[in-house]
Design a protein around this nucleic acid. Sequence first.
DNA 1: TCGTTCGCATTGACTGGACAATGCCAACGG
DNA 2: CCGTTGGCATTGTCCAGTCAATGCGAACGA
Lengths: 264, 264
Amino acid sequence: MRPTSVYEQIADDLRTKIADGTLQPGAQLPTESELREQYGVSSRSTVRQGLMVLVNEGLIVPKRPKGYFVRRWQPMVYRPQSEFGKRPPEVDIFTHLINSDGSGRSAKQEIEVAIVQPPSAVQERLRTDEADSVALRRRTRFLDDKPYNLNDSYAPLDLVQGSEWMSPADVARGTNLVLAELGHELVQALDEIYIRMPRPEEVRRLDLGPGTPVAEHIVTTFDPDGTPVQVTVNVVPGDRHVIVYERRKPDGAEPQPRIPWGAP
Amino acid sequence: MRPTSVYEQIADDLRTKIADGTLQPGAQLPTESELREQYGVSSRSTVRQGLMVLVNEGLIVPKRPKGYFVRRWQPMVYRPQSEFGKRPPEVDIFTHLINSDGSGRSAKQEIEVAIVQPPSAVQERLRTDEADSVALRRRTRFLDDKPYNLNDSYAPLDLVQGSEWMSPADVARGTNLVLAELGHELVQALDEIYIRMPRPEEVRRLDLGPGTPVAEHIVTTFDPDGTPVQVTVNVVPGDRHVIVYERRKPDGAEPQPRIPWGAP
DNA sequence: TCGTTCGCATTGACTGGACAATGCCAACGG
DNA sequence: CCGTTGGCATTGTCCAGTCAATGCGAACGA
């Protein structure tokens, strides 16, 4: 057998202890010095290398000057389909989502509005010209004053200019309804979900710990003519969300499946 | 301003060059020695620390003894909904998916079948008893002989035992149809998507590069009575997949949105 | 001509340090 | 009693190396 390196041994041992519950979420790991003794390594950096593996796997976080701790993991339900509920939601979707979860947690969002050159990914999906500017409605959503996700909506400028869509404040009845009133009811959507590591700006805006991947959830919504009306880029941190869809076979039966919560 | 550390500077500079296209996918980065000169650091480990940041972000990969290279990123469409297509697929879904993409690539899968104690996440969703064993149909799917995703399906033992569901070979008409023939047509599904870093076993089975996050896509399927019939745990590497859903407002119009491919 | 071997540039693992930054907590002072 | 300060354990950054592993390509040999 190929003898694994020391730092891999350290990482493997600690990872096992985390997986089997010997080290519970929130528990403190041995310090670097202690590990150095335990494994008989004479250099701190070797131990650090092992710990760094787990940090980058998102399993532990260092807290200076306390030590390393097993990370907590509390995903909230992120439900793209709620947007197209049977009845249009009466309040803003995000606030609605939180209130309906009955936990009495504080939901808040910061809203900025701007006119920008869209990134090419947005431009392709919105089918706008290269030179065209578009409207951007950028939201950072907070739960209990901690950032939860980013939500950048783009729409053609001529479509939304002057409307409530571009007001940097909560729109109680939802911006989708605003678009409907402007003659573009959103009836179809294409969701794309990319899994990747966050960019530095996202780490900053979302206050992400190391080793936290994100989902980039791009929603392209269409009106009845099949014209793309809005492209929304959601950045959804993996340590705080589960993305949930419900599917039904066409002409399938009625009963709703109950949701068996409990992370994997 | 807080002066950023040297290794952060190196990481930031290189990251910028990758983002703006100065360093294209596949391009070689400066070697550790070159960077040590460029930034006037006298220790190799500092340079390595900077490079390690980018490795863990999945942006570059080291290839010994050549140097570091900008990573390529070619996502394939992963479409959970295809399972519930209007017409049941005539061939196995995975093979079907590949063939329909018209690229003439080779699709293959390794299939193992076993009777196991399910992980608790599966047990909860399948609503089986703690002591109950369940049937496991484990598939590793390959595209051009490279692993693409893992697909572990669990079903109650009494339901599938002796059926084709438990044969360790391709089932041309699809295992879902087998379940239907056994009196449990799958008409509803609940999809949960967790975003996380892979476990070592997943790294091994999928041959994942460093800094590659995965989506754990758990599908719980129900028969018309609302009974969970099958739980499938898909592990989907972020560097090779985009997860795609199409949504439609109930009673919405017909036209299908076209898909504007091109990664973000 | 063609296969083999060996040099070599590069990354991987590890040593054994130094000094800085952080934030908790105990000792101290008013 | 309460606020301030300074000690201290711990992690963060960086230094200056050694030897190992890898795989490509050039030099070599049959």
